[in-house]
Design a binder for these strands. Sequence first.
RNA 1: CGGGGCGUAGCGCAGUCUGGUUUAGCGCGCCUGCCUUGGGAGCAGGAGGUCGCCAGUUCAAAUCUGGCCGCCCCGACCA
Length: 636
Amino acid sequence: MPLGSLPKGQINPFNLFTKRMRWTKTLIPTLKEDPADAESVSHKLMLRAGLIRKLSAGIYIYLPLGQRVLNKVVNIIRSEMDRAGALEVLLPALQTPELWEKTGRLKDMADIIYQFKDKSGKPCMLGPTHEEIITYLVANEVSSYRQLPVTLYQIQTKFRDELRPRFGIIRSKEFLMKDAYSFDADETGLNKSYQAMDQAYRRIFDRCGLNYKCIEGDSGAMGGHFSQEFMVPSPAGEDIFVTCSKCDYAATLMLVKCQPAPTGAKADKQPLKEVATPGTTTIEAVGKLLNVSAQQMVKTMICLAGEKPVAILLRGDHELNLSKLAKLYSGSLSGSELLPGIVGCPKGGTADWSFRMDHNRQASTAALLGEANITLAEPALIEKVTGGPLGFSGPVGLQSRNGVPIISGKGITIIADHAVMSMSNFVTGANKKDAHLLNVNLDRDFKPTHVADVRVVTEQDPCPVCQSPLKINNGLEVGHIFQLGTKYSKALEAMFLDEKGARHPVIMGCYGIGVNRIIAALIENAYDDNGIIWSTELAPYNVLIISINPADKTIAAVSTELYDQLTAKGIDVLWDDRDISPGVKFKDADLIGIPTIVTVGKGTIKDRTVDIKDRKTGRKQIVSFEKATDVIMTNV
RNA sequence: CGGGGCGUAGCGCAGUCUGGUUUAGCGCGCCUGCCUUGGGAGCAGGAGGUCGCCAGUUCAAAUCUGGCCGCCCCGACCA
C-alpha cells in the first residue's frame, strides 16, 4: 500500500490491535546538559539519552529505552546460547551460605557478598555468582556418563558489594550476567564444550556490533588450562591488555612474559660510592637529584611471602608483577641457589573467572595468590628487614648486617628481575635514611638468590610470539570463558559413573557475559558529539519518524502510514509526535541514536517526499513516498 | 579502606571565604495562554526549595563550629 493512499480517518488494518509508539506516550526523559556525577562517556550518554537513572551508588533504574536495549542484548545472547546447545535455567538470586562454606568461597568472597538473616534467624545471601548452585544441581540430578555432556546457562541478576562501584553500569552492585556452566566426562569433552562457547561468544559480540578482542586470560594457578577474555577497548575499561602490532597475540597485562635482556659487554665496574639523598624516596626524585635515568637505577621492594620477607630487585622504570611472583611461589621457590631464569610452574590454587570478572584488581590478585599469599611489606617491616626506612632500600648488605644474618638461617631471599642482570654501575638505596649508593654492581656488591621474570611487561618489550612491538590497551571485560576443572565438582561431590562403573568428578567449564556492560561498551565505542550511535541489532528502535508539525493533518497522515508500513515489515519504529520546535527533536534524535531518522515536514511532503537520514554517517536522502519504505528497509 | 572534591527547585549552577543587603537567586526543564514549526524559537503569566541531616555558637546561620549521612574522582602494585 503506497503512502498517501489511505483516506483521512481510516483505521490502518496493521494497527487494529497495537498502539503506535508515540514519543508523547512513552517516557524518554532526555537531558540537555551533562549530569554532574557522570564521568565516562557511556555513563553520561546513558543518563542524557534517558536510558537509566541512578537510585544509589552502583544501583540503576532502567527506563523504557534502556530496558529495550537490554532486552535486545538478552535476546541475542539467548538465541546464540540455544543455538550452541546450552539449556536455559533460572537459579535463585537469593541463596543460603551452606554450599559456599563447602567450597571455601564464603570466606574468599566475604567482602563482596551481601549477607543477612531472615526473620527466623536463618542466614541468607544474595548470589554474587552461581558456581555453587549449579554444581549442587548437577550433583543431585546427574549421575551417569549418559547424561553428559550438558551445558546449562541462565541470565540472572548478581549482587556484589563492590569496593568501589563506578562508571555507571560498568561496575555496579547489581548487574545482569549471563553465566553458563559446562559439565563433561573428560578433558576432550571439556574442550569441545569450551569451543562451542568460544564460537557462541564470538557470534554474540559480532551481532551486538562490538569492536572486541579475544585475549588470553589469566588462568591463574590452573596449570595447563586455558581462559579467554573478551575485551572491548575503551578508556573507561578497568582492565589492561596487551596486543601485538603484527601477529594475533593478545593477553591480559599481568600474563605477558618478559624476555631476558641481551647480556652485552658490561662496563667497567666503578668504585662503590655512597651519596646523601635527603628526603628523596622515589625513583623519580632520586633520578632528578643525582641526574641519572630510571633505567640506571634498581629499586628494591620488600614483599611478604606468607610470613617470610623477600626482596625483589627491579630496574627503576619497571613495575613489580605480583601475579608472576605468586606463580613463582606456587611453583615452589624454596632453594636458595642462583637459578638462571626460573619461571613459575603453577599448580593448584583458587583461580576462578567469575570472581575475577567484575572485581577489582586487588581482589583478583588476592584470588590468584592462593596459598602463596604475597603482599607488599609495611614500612615498619621494611625498616626491620633493611635497616633503613621506606624509600632507601637496596640489595647491598641485605643478607647480613655487621656480619650477622638479618634473617635467621640462610638469609633473605633476593629475587632479581632478568632486566637487572644486564645492568652495571647502577644506583640503589643504601639501607639507611637519606642515602643512596652509586656504582653498585652484581657479584661484587651483592648476589641475588634467584633470577626470574617478575615484572610487568612494557611497550618496550617485544611480543613473546613474534618479537614485534607490543601495544598496551585499556579494555572493558565483557566476557570470560574458562576451563574450570573439578574444583567445584570435587568440593560439592558432583560425581558421575563411567561405562565401567567408576566414580569421577564431572569436569566443568564456566562462561560469563556482563549483559549490561555490553551496552556501556558499545556506547564507549560508538558515539559522537551529538550522542549515541547504536548498532543495528542493539538500537532500542530501528527507525525514528520525526513529524515536524504533527498538528498538520497531512504530515500526521504520512507519518502514521509510514509507521504502519514499517511496523508491518517487523521494524521497531518510534514516532516523535511532540508539538515542539524541530531543533529539539533533531537534537534528541541524534542523542538517543536511532540508526535511521525519517523526517516528515512541510518542505518535502509537498513534493510527496520524505527525508531519510543515517545517524552514523549523517547522510541524508530525499525519497518519494512510494520508495520510502524500501529505502529504509535497506538501511535497517 | 586512604586521599581529594561536592551536597542550594526535576537538571546544571551562583550565593558560603567576609553571618544581616534574600521574601534564597540564575539558566534549562515543567504548567497555562498566545504565537511558531527543517537543527535545543518568541511573548505573557505561573508552580516548584525543611539550602543533605543532627547538634552547637549568635540578637541573627545556606553562610561559622562539631558530628553524621550521601554522591563523585583518584588510589589501594610500581618505595
